[in-house]
Simulated assay, not measured.
Amino acid sequence: MTTLKPNLLSQRDFDLPDEESMVQLAGRLASVCQHSCVIYLQGDLGAGKTTFSRGFIKGMGHKGKVKSPTYTLVEPYEIGPWRIFHFDLYRLADAEELEFMGIRDYFEEDCICLIEWPDKGHGLLAAADLTISIDYTPLGRRLSMLALSARGQSLLEVLT
């Protein structure tokens, strides 16, 4: 279901009954990702942000294990022409730590960034092209994708 939002932003909502459906949706999004982008992942603990990220990274063609960056803050992956960075900022004590790790270098034109808990890096992160919110429902999860840029809009338009 697609709902048009003010300022030409669009949103798509998906009801996902299980983990496998989350992984499949993430893989489909990865398969249509043809340009650099920044994706914010929001939701409560255990909602599925890391599961979605794993599905996306695998969908981009990664064959090995996808590690959670809970303690390292970021896990890098090089897949074809892309550098993919999976951030988990949950344990970030101070947003200024991102400056020390050279956060601006992660937002180049050959980079795709998946950022869990983006509110922890407020003011230092690149703006999101797509925000994904994951909520619990009685039947599984509801995943909402909101396009916040032309790049995010193009992802939603080709996601079937």
Rank of each mutant, 00 (worst) to 15 (best):
G46T: 13
G64K: 10
A30L: 00
I39F: 13
T50R: 09
S68N: 02
V74E: 04
Y77D: 02
Y40H: 15
F52Y: 10
D88P: 08
K63Q: 14
A93W: 00
C37L: 15
K63D: 09
A30K: 02
L73P: 00
I84D: 00
G55A: 12
S31H: 12
I79P: 01
R83S: 14
G64L: 10
R91Y: 07
L73D: 03
H35Q: 15
P81N: 08
V32Q: 12
K65P: 01
L45D: 06
R91K: 08
G55S: 04
P81E: 12
L41N: 09
S53C: 12
G64W: 01
K58G: 00
F87S: 10
A47L: 07
G61F: 08
V74G: 02
G64Y: 03
T50K: 10
V32T: 11
F85A: 11
V74Q: 02
K58E: 14
L41M: 10
G48A: 05
A93I: 08
G61W: 07
I84A: 05
A30M: 06
K67L: 13
T70L: 04
A30I: 10
F85E: 00
E75G: 00
S68P: 07
E75L: 02
I84E: 07
K58M: 02
L41R: 08
Q42M: 11
G61M: 11
G59T: 11
I57K: 09
C37P: 11
G48P: 10
I57W: 03
I84K: 02
M60H: 05
I84L: 15
A93Q: 15
V66S: 12
P69H: 11
K58C: 02
P76N: 01
G43N: 11
Y90R: 02
L45M: 15
V74S: 05
G80I: 05
C37S: 14
D44G: 13
V74K: 03
I39A: 13
Y77P: 01
E78D: 04
C33E: 00
Y40W: 14
F85D: 02
L89D: 10
V66H: 11
V32S: 05
P81V: 08
L89R: 11
K65H: 06
S31Y: 08
D94Y: 06
Y90P: 07
R54F: 05
T70E: 03
T51L: 15
H86Y: 05
C37F: 06
Q42V: 13
T70G: 07
L73R: 01
Y90H: 09
G43K: 13
K49G: 10
S36D: 15
I39N: 08
Y77I: 03
G64T: 01
Y90C: 04
K58L: 13
A47W: 09
V74R: 04
R54S: 00
F56E: 05
D88Q: 09
F87D: 01
V32A: 07
L45A: 12
A30G: 06
I57V: 15
H35M: 09
Y40M: 03
Q34P: 00
A30S: 12
D94G: 09
H62G: 02
G61T: 09
F56W: 04
D44I: 09
K49S: 11
E78M: 00
K65D: 06
G43I: 14
E78F: 04
S68T: 14
G55V: 04
G55E: 07
H86W: 06
I79Q: 01
W82S: 05
G48T: 10
G80Q: 05
